[in-house]
Design a binder for these strands. Sequence first.
RNA 1: GGGGAGAUUCCAGAGUGGCCAAAUGGGGCAGACUGUAAAUCUGUUGGCGAUGCCUUCGGAGGUUCGAAUCCUCCUCUCCCCA
Length: 410
Amino acid sequence: MFDNVFDELRYRGFIEQSTDEAVLRDLLTKQKVTSYIGFDPTADSLHVGSLVQIMALYHMQKYGHRPIALFGGGTAMIGDPSGKTELRQMLTRETIGANAESIKKQVGKYIDFSENGTAVAVDNADWLLGLSYIEFLRDIGRNFSVNRMLAAESYKMRMETGLNFIEFNYQILQAYDYLELYRRHKCVLQMGGNDQWGNIVAGIDLIRRMEGAEVYALTTPLVTTASGQKMGKTAQGAVWLDPQRYKPYDFYQYWVNVDDQDVIRFMKLFTIMTPEEIAPYESLEGADLRQAKQRLAFELTAFIHSREDAEEAQKAAEALFGEGGAKAGAPETTVTSEEIGDGMPITALFAKVGLAPSSSEARRMIRGGGLYFKDERVTDERYLVTVKDFSEGDILLRAGKKRYHLVKLQ
RNA sequence: GGGGAGAUUCCAGAGUGGCCAAAUGGGGCAGACUGUAAAUCUGUUGGCGAUGCCUUCGGAGGUUCGAAUCCUCCUCUCCCCA
């Protein structure tokens, strides 16, 4: 165990940049510090890309500090241009509000916002939506130098493609958020992804000017996979934390399939395993790393979803990929004999259970030799599945090497 | 306010009357090789009970036997001048 969060965060690889490291570390060692991280309610669920931020808050709370999760119901009306190439799609206020609620609930699973919990959840819509433009310009706006903002790297890219005035204000609003949280909650540390550095520092400057106080910044690395991909992007889209959107089994599989080079790094960043628990895995190499991947997947699934989900996913994976090849645990779909009728095209069946996005795609996969019916490669793309095929029980379908689906007849 | 350029399939980006479901690259998916990894090579990449049919090239109309390509209007974006 570490005697302060800073050291633990550093060990786990959370720290990309920070303002005066020595001072910040000292502060986090000796006092209970209030810090915040913002989440954009642009969807009704967070995905693994936000996991780093959630874990950062989690560790803060673990050490008795007071983390604030800020849901950007106000700033989401605008959209952060940092690192993006174009204007974000505008969402309605209703959608944003609903998203914020939903995400708040989600984060609440990992961070304790309850009455006696130390953490706080806030929504910047509370103070941003009612702002008076003129007053805001007089009080806040005058503290920002356009010259300096334009010089910032995050805006430079957009200077090429065009930057809308509305987005240009994002940084100012985020800086104002920091000021508000400093005033309301004595929040003296803002964390966020490294792309937020400029925005955070803008807040620090604003607080120094307006309150004469010294506050801090700490950014986490923008986690990408070893192959350079953004975290959590798969063929099916983002890896959502919402079990409705992304099944715990698939979530587990996502982590089992991470690149060799990423396993240990991800263990440190995303799980609550202790350094002692992680250490043995660090020396593994080659195929043995699979053990580390399985542990990573288990720990994460248990933390994000539940222990039961993790055990189920693990069992299912063992059944499918281990020796024997039992079919327990694969996702299931039930079809009725009416649906099958005189015979259902095999392509339609694969499309129905979701192993192929469409019948046409199923047909292509068959031509490429990628679909399996009862463990046998499908060769006839016009094969009609009939009730007789179920005479020996459920049918196991497979697409590629790892995607299984069980079809039951009712 | 004036002038110019542009909006193409998941992304980038060709195509400027039939040969276009639309080049090429990226990404995705699948096959081979493996360790449920990476890298590499190969195939594939709108939908459909399918040698054909249907929907797609910002939106709405129009010209034509035939339009992503031509015309009109609209929406949005970018650039230059003021």
